[in-house]
Write a protein that binds this DNA or RNA. Structure first.
Lengths: 356, 356
DNA sequence: TTGTAGGCGTTATCAG
DNA sequence: CTGATAACGCCTACAA
């Protein structure tokens, strides 16, 4: 099917081409009796158009219901007004909160959010990023500092700015915004050590393709190692992000003859599960054992025994990341490495170990 | 600053324009010794290009690291490969789950997801939708059936397909996918009525700008009305989506001299809060009173007394919505009205009212 | 301050 | 099966 315009120029010979399906800038211009350039200026640079013209144009736009075509604009402008974010998943609370914050922040700057998931897979993250670049995103928000080997090269090569979130590392290449995961668990562990604990258990999500979880686990191990302690294999369990899993793993690490006095959980759902199972088993927290989590969701503070945890303000991470990437897109040159606080929230679930 | 191309054509007189910053289709074509049309076909319609040419082109693309420009493609194609979704919020579990599912589903069809929030505000929803249209989305996923008065007209006028999710209504204009909110609570209430309850309390989120919550509340009221019952004002409380609020409101509705025997909660967080507070108050659930929720998050089944609730598979809603909208974009004409099951999950938190 | 005209990077028509 | 070329809708350097 030939395009409407072509068809038209074959049938009538000169002006008044057959009406196109959708109104465009030219239609507005014609209706307002000005040039397309003036219409364009009236919306992108209102100040340099005389007041009456501007007004007339605006009213015509409104009457015709014209909506500028982003693709065409992006093509000439080389800017789409879109920021992409690739998260490992969207169903975990922290990323959902960050997404919310990013969205809100971008809104105030006139950008929109393109969203994708990597499912904790570097390959897929890379693929998503490539697709985003094709879509013309102006900047990217990523999670973590471990990516596909080609990723950074690709981004750098095309000059697309990006931030890495939920990590803080002085050694990484590029900007990052987030907590120091290693230090967070290092400090949390020292808090427990200072309380007198020596027998630790850990229940955590998989560290595969998750540099943040890996860093936290290392923080835990390093703190223990400094006091010549370690977690025995039977007190170490890996699972998913669910309460049910927390229950099962808690039962598992409590099954042996030697019981831990402190159980460190890698995320708030595991922590809640561990706690609920401890109650079901008739244990008294923190008298019989301490349970601590990571990340502060509301549930942890509302359980019958509120759970000690590490608070990372995921919305702050998101907000700052969005703000930074917009700044970068609009010309601010500097990279930044911003550390978000990872605060230990001490609640009733942690205390000295039981005397034997 | 004049563009590279312009500059070039002033300095050299004929071919070999100054190298552009980014490689384009023409560069690939030149390097492969074919026309741009052939390169275009090689990637969009590989079958109609001879095998050896195709292979040569592909290798050149790879070598030059060319990434097609989505804006340019969208401009000629009139299709962006992008679906927009506007949710009231992203931090509630159900929308987060739906987002996740939508994203995953779109991925398999080669589309990407543009995401925005309306903050439960019709005006803002409308604004976001307009922005999405400017960005060139091919289809839209909305929530609910109550929108800005101009919204549907706008969408219909531009021929942009959309689905309304989390609602099921035969009377609405357009497609919708979701549970029948009214019937869900109607049934749940009847379940409690059949158990023998007559004194009800309700704890719910605000129904302002939330047609789903409104429908559910009406379902509850209608079921009661059929048995000539109603919820007295002192047993009705409105709050947010938090456990803490659930606690406070539970305490509130239990404060008067006449206690309810069944507390119906509008969302799972309120339900969890109500339950936790009931425990703190020393009440026995379901012996002293029944507590039921809406929406099934994992927590409800893991509490010491698992909570009866209504299960809506939010990911199913998302997946189907995505699938439908993609179909529509690609030419399937029919509208649909798909009802997702809203299943009552009976757990230990509900039982007969106490005998007096 | 406003108009003219060319180009942004692809796709698609039409001829070879 | 392949190549030349005109759109796609808007922006902007340049001229008036």
């Amino acid at each position: 099917m030939p395009r409407a315009r072509v068809q038209a120029s074959k049938e009538n010979d000169d002006k008044s081409p057959a009406p196109r399906a959708t109104v465009g800038l030219r239609d507005v211009a014609r209706a307002a009796g000005v040039s397309t350039a003036t219409v364009s200026r009236a919306i992108n640079n209102p100040d340099i158009v005389s007041a009456d013209l501007r007004e007339r144009i605006l009213s015509v736009i409104d009457r015709l219901g014209w909506v500028p075509d982003g693709a065409a604009r992006a093509l000439t402008t080389r800017r789409a007004g879109v920021i992409g974010a690739v998260f490992p998943t969207l169903s975990h609370g922290d990323f959902a909160r960050a997404t919310n914050a990013i969205q809100a922040e971008l809104l105030t700057s006139g950008y929109t959010l393109l969203l994708a998931c990597s499912d904790y897979d570097a390959e897929q993250e890379y693929r998503q990023v490539r697709k985003f670049i094709e879509r013309g995103v102006d900047g990217l928000i990523l999670v973590g500092e471990a990516h596909h080997p080609k990723l950074k090269e690709f981004l750098l090569g095309r000059g697309v700015p990006f931030v890495q979130t939920f990590v803080y590392s002085r050694t990484t290449h590029g900007s990052c915004i987030g907590p120091d995961n290693h230090r967070a668990l290092f400090n949390l562990t020292n808090y427990l050590l200072d309380l007198g604990h020596v027998r630790f258990a850990a229940i955590a999500q998989s560290t595969e393709n998750n540099d943040r979880a890996t860093a936290r686990l290392n923080g835990l191990r390093d703190a223990l190692a400094e006091r010549s302690l370690a977690i025995p294999p039977e007190h170490f369990a890996i699972g998913e992000w669910t309460i049910a899993e927390g229950r099962a793993l808690f039962r598992h690490v409590m099954a042996g003859p030697s019981k831990p006095t402190a159980v460190v959980c890698g995320n708030p759902y595991l922590a809640a599960g561990a706690f609920l199972e401890s109650q079901a088993m008739g244990l008294r927290v923190p008298h019989d054992l301490s349970i601590v989590g990571y990340d502060d969701i509301e549930l942890l503070s509302e359980l019958p025994v509120p759970i000690t945890t590490v608070r990372v303000q995921s919305d702050q991470v998101g907000r700052y990341a969005a703000r930074f990437i917009v700044g970068k897109v609009e010309g601010k040159p500097a990279d930044i490495v911003f550390e978000c606080p990872a605060e230990i929230i001490v609640r009733a679930s942690s205390g000295p170990p039981p005397r034997r």
